[in-house]
Write a protein that binds this DNA or RNA. Structure first.
Lengths: 193, 193
DNA sequence: GAGTAATGAATGAATGGTCATTCATTATGG
DNA sequence: CCATAATGAATGACCATTCATTCATTACTC
């Protein structure tokens, strides 16, 4: 196994164990075992468990942003662009339940709160500020979406998506393409003027 | 301190410590200390830490449901009833940040997932099924709200509320009565036909 | 190119710390 | 004075992290 493979194996094992059992029941010993390395090896690739967890989160975030950008065109009308992003995110989560669970765990842990706070203070704008931010700000100035603080627009758009994804992944609802579309449109309804 | 007071003190200490530091950094030793009792005393009132945590959750849930019912009238029109419930919940969370944080911690822990699963299987209907369920089901049959599975209606209605409450409590937005009203109405927009 | 030395990645047993829980002992109050 | 409540030191389990040691690979020398 190459060096890069080993690092990857450790990250993958962490993803699986944390997603399934939470941070506290994902001890380094188990992560190492599942990755097929010794416990000490983790520390050759990551300074400590903390760093491992944060690095994994950042890599997932990057991957998601890249995925959402494919097929996103700045020329389409607001509603379409919005629905593309929002239903794309939902589809991604459904296709990657482990990643979704990991991200949720992260967001609700002390790591995640600190991480988010840094981000909000660094730039004075909310999360994955790249595409979403632009879309929302433009929408507000052009008076197609409600005139509310950016953070609240994010909450209205993504709050339901997270909640729906969780319920699908826990098996409480079975989503299909039609439902996903309807949900994305409902989110749009809550934003549009 | 009376027996009841002691039990109450333990629950309160648990609420505070779990809300602030999470389950893992709320050891029994600290809970006991903050409650002004010895560690062993906890086990005279609760079988173990698990039970303590679940009992506290159930008491909070009961309290919230009771609060929301005050001022709720079955005669008002849909939109008003909905906005009453949803903005009431948001106001409750904002007024009780510790409770909100505790509930969120709980929902995202193995306790919470198991708890929810039992609930969903017990009755084949989603959460606080009392008032909300009735309102939503009635709304669907009367064709005032979208014809979507009940679980999804819950997600659309409460997903944003949770998200908004979290951002307020973390200090990322300062909500006032006007904003709360606007948010509740936006949630309604996503449900209404 | 064979033999030897140097390197540094990988290992996993050992360490020190933390935690939930127990229980022998002590305090309380009726 | 007895029954019951409360105590908190002790226990055993578990965990993140360390580090002396092993081992495979590379570099060097003749």
């Amino acid at each position: 196994m190459s060096k890069e493979d080993k690092r990857e194996a450790i990250l993958q094992a962490t993803l699986e164990l944390v997603a399934e059992h939470g941070f506290h029941d994902a001890p380094c010993s188990l992560i190492a075992e599942r990755a097929g390395v010794a416990a000490g090896t983790i520390y050759r690739y990551f300074e400590n468990k903390n760093e491992l967890i944060v690095v994994l989160y950042r890599e997932l975030e990057t991957k998601i942003n890249a995925t959402l950008l494919t097929g996103y065109t700045l020329e389409a009308p607001f509603r379409e662009r919005f629905v593309h992003l929002v239903s794309g995110l939902l589809q991604y989560f459904i296709a990657s339940p482990l990643e979704f669970k990991y991200i949720e765990q992260f967001h609700h842990s002390p790591y995640g709160v600190a991480f988010r706070r840094d981000k909000m203070l660094g730039q004075d704008e909310p999360e994955g500020c790249n595409i979403y931010c632009e879309l929302f700000k433009q929408g507000v100035t052009q008076q197609v979406i409600k005139d509310l603080p950016l953070v609240l627009l994010f909450d209205l758009a993504f709050g339901p998506i997270i909640s729906v994804a969780r319920n699908h992944i826990l098996g409480f609802i079975q989503l299909d393409a039609t439902l996903i579309q309807q949900i994305a449109e409902a989110c749009w309804d809550s934003l549009k003027r």
